[in-house]
Design a protein around this nucleic acid. Structure first.
Lengths: 230, 230
DNA sequence: AATCCGCCGCTTGTATACAATATTTCTTGC
DNA sequence: GCAAGAAATATTGTATACAAGCGGCGGATT
C-alpha cells in the first residue's frame, strides 16, 4: 500500500509532521498500542529524528500518544471504560453549546441550522453513512459556533480528534441514522424556541445515546479479537 | 557536569524542564506576552536548547504558550473574554463531577467530603486566604475523584493549570470566602442527599460566581494598566 | 529629507554525533 | 535444563554544529 519505500519526497505537501502522524493514527494506519519508532518514522518522512520527536511530544500533549520515559512513544490504547468517560465529557460540552445556542441564536443562525438539518435529512435519505457523518458533523459544528464560546469550540475539537477514529464507526447502522435525525430535530426545535435547558438535555442525551451504542460496539470488537492482552 | 556559568543553583531537583518553565509562568515570573528565548532559558537551566524546545512545544500543546512559526514562543496572553469562556467550561465540567458524585458517593466518600469541608471552614476562620485556597482545592478535588470519571478529572486538571495563575487572585476577599463556604455547604448537602441535578446546579453557580467576580477583577486590572495594547 | 533596497546579525529549525539507559540475548553456574 | 548475571545491542535523550528566515540598520537614490 505504501509505496514510499525510502525518502522519495514523501511529505512534499505535508505542512508539518504532527498532522501527518496524527493522520496515520486517525486513519488507523497506526493502531492503538503500536510503538512509534523514531528512526523508522524519520526514514519514512525523509527527515531527521529531531522533528519527529517534536511531533511525538506534541501528540503526547494532545493525548493521542503516550510516552514512557526511556521506553518510547505508543499510540494510546483507549480502553472501553476511558472511552465512555470521554464521551460523557463530550456530551456535557456539546450540551453546553446547545444551551448557549438556544440563548443566543439569531434568526440567521436558526436559518443556518435549518439548512444543516436539511442537509442531514438529505444525507439520511441517500443512505450513505459517510455523507451523513459529515452532514451530522456540520450540524453539530454550527451549534458550537452559535454557542459563541470559542474556547469551548476549540476544546471540543481537541476531544473530537481523540474520538474521531472510533466515532466514524458508529453511524453505520441505518436505524441509528434515523434516530439521530429525529434527535437533531428535537435539538433544533428547542434551540429555535429558545429553551436552553431543553436544548441542553436533548443534546446531552443525543450524544449519550451515541455513547451507549458505541460502547456496545467497542465491547463487541474487543470481545471478538480478544488477542490484545498487553 | 553541571557547569552553568551564571548558575543560581537552578534545577538540581527539577524532574523535567516542562514543569520548571510551567512554574515560572504560573507563579508569574514569566508574564503573559513575554517572549521565551530558547538560549536564555537553556543557559539558565544549564542545559542545551534541545530539551528547552521540547518543553516549549509541550507547553504550547497544553495551551500555556503560543508559538509563532519562525518567531518564537510567547506566554499566552489570555484576554478577559477568553478567560470567561474558560471559566464557563470549567463550571460545566465541575458541575458534571458534582452530578456524578451525587449519584455515586458512598458513605466513606461523604465522610471524606465532610472532612474537606471542615478543613475549609477552619481555613476560612483562620482568615488566611492562601490556606483557604488549598483547602478549597482539596474539596473540589475530592468531588472530582468521587465523580469517578478519570478522564474528566484529568481534563479539569489541565484546564485548571491554565486558570491557576489567575485563580489564585480571586479568593482574596474575605466576604467571598464566606460565600464560597456556604456554597460548598449547599453542594455537599445535595451530594449527600443524592440529588444529582441540585448538586450540579450548585456547583455550576459556585464556579460561575467565581467567574463573574473574577472577570470583574481582571477587567479592573486591565483597565488600570491600560498599557498593553497589542 | 524621506523612502526604499540590501546587508548583517540574531533566532529558530534541522541534522548529526554522542551519551545514557532499557532490553535482549548469550553464557555460565547450579 | 533452568536461572541469573553480564555483555551486547538498540533506542531514547542530549548536545553541538549547521542551515534558513526574519528583523533591524544603514546607505543610496529620488
Amino acid at each position: 500500500m505504501r509505496k514510499d519505500t525510502k525518502g522519495d519526497m514523501v511529505t512534499t505537501d505535508t505542512p508539518n509532521l504532527r498532522d501527518a502522524i496524527e493522520d496515520r493514527i486517525l486513519t488507523g494506519a497506526l493502531r492503538p498500542g503500536a510503538r512509534l519508532d523514531e528512526v523508522s518514522l524519520a526514514q519514512e518522512f525523509g527527515v531527521s529524528r529531531t522533528p519527529i520527536r517534536q511531533a511525538l511530544f506534541q501528540l503526547a500533549a494532545t493525548g493521542l500518544v503516550e510516552q514512557f520515559p526511556r521506553r518510547g512513544a505508543f499510540v494510546v490504547d483507549t480502553g472501553p471504560a476511558r472511552l465512555r468517560e470521554m464521551f460523557e465529557v463530550m456530551a456535557e460540552l456539546e450540551a453546553l453549546c446547545a444551551r448557549n445556542a438556544a440563548r443566543r441564536a439569531s434568526q440567521a443562525d436558526l436559518q443556518t441550522l435549518e439548512e444543516c438539518h436539511e442537509a442531514c435529512r438529505i444525507a439520511a435519505d441517500s443512505g450513505d453513512s459517510d455523507t451523513y457523518y459529515y452532514a451530522n458533523e456540520a450540524f453539530h459544528d454550527a451549534i458550537r459556533v452559535i454557542g459563541g464560546n470559542g474556547f469551548l469550540h476549540q476544546e471540543i475539537g481537541r476531544l473530537q480528534k481523540r474520538l474521531q477514529a472510533f466515532r466514524r464507526l458508529q453511524l453505520r447502522a441505518r436505524a441509528r441514522i434515523g434516530a439521530s435525525l429525529r434527535e437533531h430535530a428535537a435539538i433544533l426545535a428547542a434551540i429555535g424556541a429558545g429553551q436552553s435547558a431543553e436544548a441542553a438535555d436533548a443534546m446531552r442525551s443525543h450524544v449519550a445515546i451515541q455513547n451507549e451504542q458505541f460502547t456496545d460496539l467497542i465491547a463487541t470488537l474487543q470481545r471478538n479479537k480478544s488477542s490484545s492482552a498487553a
